[in-house]
């Protein structure tokens, strides 16, 4: 392996329903720091159907180069087709680093691509840095239910690959003057042969704002006493542009679907703001949210474990506090209008 042939930082953009999704812009913020330190170009790779219109946005958010493969066969996610195209692109352009978001897409396509390329892949990183001299990516990630942090590198293989936790980083400030280079690639029809057939997508309204996609997550536990009290969490989340999560106990009670469960056997999140309401703070719950930037807890038990991981806590009855908080936030928003 001639490591020095590999240069540049790539980010794997995501297209959902024809639109470039927000994680694509966040990835550029992750990549920018690395590309600046390594003094190389930052690229975004976009696969999709009918997407050309919005590509300039990627330049505005930091990309120097955008690789585009636009084909009607790319309308849906067919893993074999996508991984075949990424493999061809990597073999032609040889980036030293590839990062993707740890979404269901990134977590599927990246291990496939790493297996094809025979290189290392680090999962769900919360921090990335580079050893500039050695040009080695230092990837830090939580494991074992958030109890351990490990820094991992891929010293001898290229590209170095990582997925990063969605929404752990904000997109850069938009610079509308920034321009870049578009590289449009076409592949012959055999690239599009697939063992998959896409059938349908059904929106699930209860996951309208998926918790892994949100900067703000308001979670409820057994302390909410009744499924209908989750309505207050939805009201609160709406005011803060967030999503609603839950403890396993709340899911087990049937108050909210499993897709909202935060924790060891649910989703692991790092939103910028996490609020735990009526959640005791069992290790299995904390495993899913302890790396959130800011944590607020509301619990009537002053000794609840959740307060240990909270930046701010209120000891009191959530069912009394929530209505007052929602009212207060409505007033705030009106004032700001």
């Amino acid at each position: 392996m001639l490591k020095n042939e590999y240069r540049g930082v790539w980010t794997i953009g995501e297209v959902r329903n024809g639109e470039i999704s927000s994680v694509s812009y966040e990835l550029l913020a992750w990549g920018k720091k690395l590309a600046e330190k390594l003094k190389v170009e930052l690229s975004s790779v976009i696969l999709g159907s009918d997407i050309q219109g919005e590509l300039n946005e990627l330049f505005h958010f930091g990309a120097d180069v955008v690789y585009v493969v636009d084909d009607e066969n790319l309308e849906h996610f067919l893993p074999d087709v996508h991984s075949r195209i990424y493999e061809a692109l990597v073999k032609e352009y040889k980036p030293e680093i590839i990062i993707a978001s740890a979404t269901t897409y990134g977590r599927t396509i990246m291990p496939m691509l790493a297996a094809k390329l025979g290189t290392g892949l680090t999962a769900d990183c919360t921090k990335l840095d580079v050893d500039v001299k050695e040009r080695i990516l230092l990837q830090t990630r939580p494991a074992i239910g958030g109890n351990v942090m490990a820094t991992i590198k891929t010293p001898n293989h290229r590209p170095q690959m990582a997925t990063v936790r969605p929404h752990a980083q904000k997109a850069l400030v938009k610079d509308e003057k920034k321009d870049g280079k578009i590289i449009l690639k076409n592949y012959p029809s055999e690239f599009y042969k697939s063992k998959y057939r896409w059938v349908s997508f059904e929106r699930d309204k209860s996951v309208d704002s998926p918790i892994q996609e949100s900067d703000v997550v308001i979670s409820g536990g057994k302390g909410l006493k009744d499924g209908k009290n989750f309505k207050m969490l939805y009201d609160l989340a709406k005011k803060l542009n967030g999503a609603v999560g839950a403890s396993r106990a709340a899911v087990d009670m049937g108050w909210i679907p499993y897709s909202h469960q935060v924790g060891l056997s649910g989703k692991t999140l790092s939103p910028r703001f996490y609020m735990a309401v009526g959640i005791s703070g069992a290790v299995q719950h904390i495993a899913g949210m302890s790396s959130s930037e800011v944590i607020v807890a509301i619990n009537k038990d002053p000794d609840a474990a959740i307060f240990k991981v909270a930046d701010f806590g209120i000891v009191g009855d959530a069912l009394e506090i929530l209505p007052v908080l929602i009212k207060k936030l409505s007033d705030e928003v009106n004032e700001n209008d």
Binding site: L138, M149, A150, T151, K153, S290, K308, G313, G316, E320
Partner: peptide
């Protein structure tokens, strides 16, 4: 294995945040 674990550490989970008791709902909120 292409990857190498270079460092393992145990994050300090405890945040020593400010915890207040509700005396009057309005002011707590």
């Amino acid at each position: 294995s292409p990857t190498r674990v270079v460092k393992v550490f145990y994050p300090k989970l405890s945040r020593d945040g400010k915890i207040i008791k509700v005396r009057d709902l309005e002011s707590a909120v």
